[in-house]
Design a protein around this nucleic acid. Structure first.
Lengths: 309, 309
DNA sequence: ACCCATTATGCCGGAAAAGCATCGCTGCGC
DNA sequence: GCGCAGCGATGCTTTTCCGGCATAATGGGT
């Protein structure tokens, strides 16, 4: 190198050597501990002192003592070395997926059986990863994953139009059911023929907020060419439960809603069975999933395994 | 070196280079900025990545991009480099006496004219030095300086017995005076002959707490072979002022007390003048004074110069 | 398919660090 | 009082490795 700037000679080696000497208060012993020869150590510490322009040690034939400046610099050097170790370890942790932030999108209702236990095991295995959950609508989830603001989404299979650039890994499939009040005639049946819905009125979620649900509904009804009158539109699960249990109508729901409605409604499978609602992991086709994200997927999969047992 | 430990290859150079590349997002430009050739930079960053065992950058023919780990490590590296600079600068500051702690012992009354202005100018010139003032008796001051718990003391010249191992640098000398109430006959004189004290009673400070004062007093009186009756012993300046102004007696005091007693007492020089009370700097004969201490001494000297004008 | 910018690789020279031997200093013990 | 032991510094040689130059490889853009 032609030109060497003033302060560009200091290296971590100098700090490591200085700390060793300052701790041993003896060049020879420090050299042994560092597995280097004493003269090398001697010179490196001299270089360090020249670099800083301050005497850090007072030498004597009996060993060395720290000057006031040396004491200060010892603290500083120790701190710097500790921080470098921490920096490296942090980075490795991040690479191993044991550290950092993980942005996960999800649809609350369809994932109610899968997500909570997966979150629990994940946080237990890597507590230093902060999971940020984002409760969004289906198309927003898809957009988020595509843009990269979400690393993964746990949700129903995206519609064709929403699915471009995304990969869907199915975790579980819920049969489509009809939800009725416990005193409704359907409640006594083991399954309900699709054709029998013709005389019923539908309770549905609001189209605006539940586009995915309406897509599902449409596909179910389309398959039998039916068009049912809509009794009410609900803004959420609890009002839907109220509407149905008071006899205002029935609803078409995936079986997972059993976990939500409890005993207040009865869910009966439809025959012939429409295509089941698939719940799974959505990730971007291109764009890496971090190790932490992979771990999370593993937790989801094992959460599903527990479920089916 | 025969054995090279796992993590002992990382140096500040690697961090400096990595930061440059991560900021430029381009090896070639970073190399130019660092005034090194691009291949050198390329290799050093590779070495760093090998060392950590994590990919920090994704290379492409259009430049480089940071991985998530790379972003984290960039922050860490920047911080480490900043801290090293700070560590060096702190150490240099300490060596220049612009930083650190300074323990100063003093006797309050005799230094009342000198110390406060010196402290003021000192703190203005080096605000990052924390001055710790220790108000102690004369022998404790001497002990403290000898032991090194005090770097300096500002006080009257130590007695012979107390002065061993110490160096005294005189700053100012105050003539010995007699202090009387304003209506006392002495108050009208320009000076008072020592012999005329014979008919007076003495107001003194307590022997226990003011050994130095009593030594001074003894030497003044011994020089004229007088022994005066003691009217009262006082625990401090304010009670001494009260005693004298109410006519209970007179006191022998150095002229500096004029600043303390104000108009409440009159101080008149004695003739023939006894040896003046010398105020100065006490330091250990061996044992360094830090640069900050030297600066403080300079402030004291200039404070005295201001005084005599 | 070619081109260009950009990074990676091979090789060499030199600077700097490490090792070895030795010197100089100082305090301790015989 | 003198030698000896322990310590750090210094001179010199060896080794390492960093940097420079030339060039290959890579891959997106036109």
């Amino acid at each position: 190198m032609l030109f060497r700037h003033n302060g560009f000679g200091m290296e971590l080696r100098h700090l490591r050597y200085y700390v060793a000497v300052a701790e041993a208060l003896n060049f020879t012993k420090a050299a042994a501990r560092l597995r280097v020869a004493q003269p090398a150590l001697s010179r490196q510490v001299q270089d360090l002192e020249d670099e800083i322009g301050v005497d850090l040690l007072t030498r004597s034939p009996r060993g060395v003592a720290l000057t006031a400046e040396g004491k200060l610099f010892l603290e500083e050097a120790r701190d710097i070395l500790k921080r470098t170790d921490e920096a490296v370890e942090k980075t490795r942790s991040l690479a191993r997926g044991e550290f950092g932030e993980l942005h996960i999108g999800y649809s609350p209702s369809p994932t109610v059986e899968i997500l909570p236990p997966a979150l629990g095991t994940f946080q237990k295995s890597v507590p230093r990863v902060t999971v940020r959950l984002h409760n969004l609508a289906g198309n927003e989830l898809a957009d988020g994953v595509r843009k990269g603001t979400l690393e993964l989404a746990v949700m129903q299979r995206p519609l064709e139009a929403n699915g471009i650039g995304l990969q869907f890994e199915p975790l579980h499939a819920y049969p489509i059911c009809v939800a009725v009040a416990p005193d409704h005639p359907f409640a006594k049946m083991k399954s309900v023929a699709l054709a029998r819905l013709a005389t019923e009125k539908l309770v549905v979620f609001r189209r605006r907020e539940y586009a995915d649900y309406h897509a599902l509904l449409a596909s179910v009804l389309r398959s039998v060419n039916q068009r049912l009158p809509i009794a009410t539109e609900c803004d959420g699960a609890s009002s839907l439960i109220t509407e149905i249990s008071t006899g205002r109508g029935i609803a078409i729901l995936p079986l997972v809603f059993e976990k939500i409605v409890g005993a207040r409604l009865k869910l009966r499978p439809l025959t012939p069975a429409p295509p089941a609602q698939e719940i799974g992991i959505v990730r971007a086709l291109k764009g890496d999933v971090t190790p932490a994200g992979e771990k999370f997927c593993a937790c989801l999969r094992s959460s599903v395994k527990q479920l089916t047992r």
